[in-house]
């Protein structure tokens, strides 16, 4: 595997693991991390979270990833683990880009 690809996958893996870990801890889920597939839906079916849990996901993003979710943000980033991870990585890149520009 090429170095760049490996780095991308490693970076994603770290976020995936962290997301699963904190969701399990904060929402008292019964699953082990490896039991949660990345395309698992968060609401309705899948992990079967509800609107109260949605607020926990927002708090989790702040506490574990330093991401503030503004009012009015399209909630589709919470559709499944993969989309949550995409959202975190996007925000991370945006922050890094902003920092690079500032420097």
């Amino acid at each position: 595997m090429q170095e760049a690809l490996k780095n991308t996958i490693d970076e994603r893996n770290i976020v995936i693991d962290e997301v699963k870990k904190v969701l399990i801890e904060r929402l008292n889920l019964y699953q082990e991390p490896q039991d949660i597939d990345e395309d698992t839906p968060l609401f309705g079916s899948g992990l079967k979270l509800d609107s109260v849990d949605a607020t926990e996901v927002v708090v989790m993003l702040d506490m574990s990833f330093g991401i503030k979710v503004e009012e009015g943000t399209d909630p589709s980033f919470m559709r499944n683990i993969n989309q949550l991870v995409d959202f975190i990585l996007e925000r991370k890149r945006a922050t890094e880009a902003a920092a690079a520009e500032a420097a």
Binding site: N28, V52, D53, T55, V59, D62
Partner: peptide, 10 residues
């Protein structure tokens, strides 16, 4: 306290 565990609240 913004990090309150809402799932435990009720």
């Amino acid at each position: 306290p913004n990090n309150v565990r809402t799932s435990e609240f009720a």
